[in-house]
Computed example of a mutant assay.
Amino acid sequence: MADAEMLTVFVYDVESDRTRRRLSAYLEDFAVRVQKSVFEARLTAARTQAVTRAAAALLDPGDSLRVYAVATVGRSRCHVVGGGPMLENEPYILL
């Protein structure tokens, strides 16, 4: 299924406060912040690529953005200790 959604994790390391604010504001439109520089979303592969390209354009030289797509089998092996729960397969997010 090419249009299947997967848990997608965005992790960044950005030096400039201004760039960090712009990047986090952009990611908040598509994902849920789970730590200061970590966001989770349920996205298709095409949407992940589009979000990643746009987010990368916001970065300065020396900054980094990592994007992890977690398939269903990998999701069953993920664990959370403390904090909120991982995003479920539901079409909505409870806050």
Rank of each mutant, 00 (worst) to 15 (best):
M1W: 05
M1Y: 01
M1S: 13
D3I: 06
D3W: 03
E5S: 12
E5F: 01
M6N: 08
M6P: 06
M6D: 09
L7S: 05
T8C: 05
F10A: 12
F10R: 11
F10L: 13
F10E: 10
V11F: 05
V11D: 10
Y12M: 08
Y12H: 10
V14S: 08
V14K: 00
V14R: 01
S16P: 11
S16D: 14
S16V: 05
S16Q: 13
S16G: 11
D17R: 12
D17H: 11
D17P: 11
R18Q: 12
R18T: 11
R18F: 01
R18D: 03
R20K: 04
R20M: 02
R21K: 15
R22D: 02
R22W: 01
R22S: 06
L23F: 06
L23Q: 07
L23S: 11
S24Q: 11
S24A: 15
A25Q: 12
A25C: 08
A25I: 02
A25H: 09
A25P: 03
Y26I: 07
Y26M: 01
L27W: 09
L27Q: 03
E28L: 07
E28S: 13
D29N: 09
D29G: 08
D29L: 10
F30R: 02
A31V: 07
A31C: 02
V32G: 01
R33P: 03
V34C: 06
V34D: 02
Q35E: 03
K36A: 06
K36Q: 11
K36V: 11
V38C: 04
F39C: 00
F39T: 00
F39R: 02
E40S: 01
A41L: 04
R42D: 04
L43A: 08
L43K: 01
L43P: 00
T44I: 05
A45S: 02
A45F: 04
A46G: 01
R47T: 02
R47I: 07
T48Q: 00
T48N: 07
A50T: 04
A50D: 04
A50V: 07
V51Q: 04
T52L: 03
T52D: 10
T52G: 02
R53Y: 10
R53H: 07
R53E: 12
A54L: 09
A54V: 07
A54S: 11
A56D: 01
D60H: 07
D60S: 05
P61M: 00
P61V: 00
G62D: 04
G62L: 07
D63W: 08
D63H: 06
D63C: 06
S64N: 13
S64W: 06
R66H: 09
V67N: 06
V67K: 08
A71Q: 05
A71H: 09
T72K: 08
V73Q: 05
V73F: 01
G74C: 12
G74F: 04
G74E: 10
R75S: 08
R75Q: 09
S76W: 06
R77L: 13
R77T: 12
C78W: 00
H79M: 13
V80M: 09
V81T: 12
V81Y: 12
G82R: 13
M86K: 15
M86Q: 14
L87V: 09
L87H: 12
L87S: 05
N89C: 13
N89F: 15
N89G: 15
N89K: 14
E90F: 14
E90V: 13
E90Q: 15
P91V: 14
P91D: 14
P91K: 10
I93D: 12
I93K: 14
L94F: 15
L95I: 15
L95G: 14
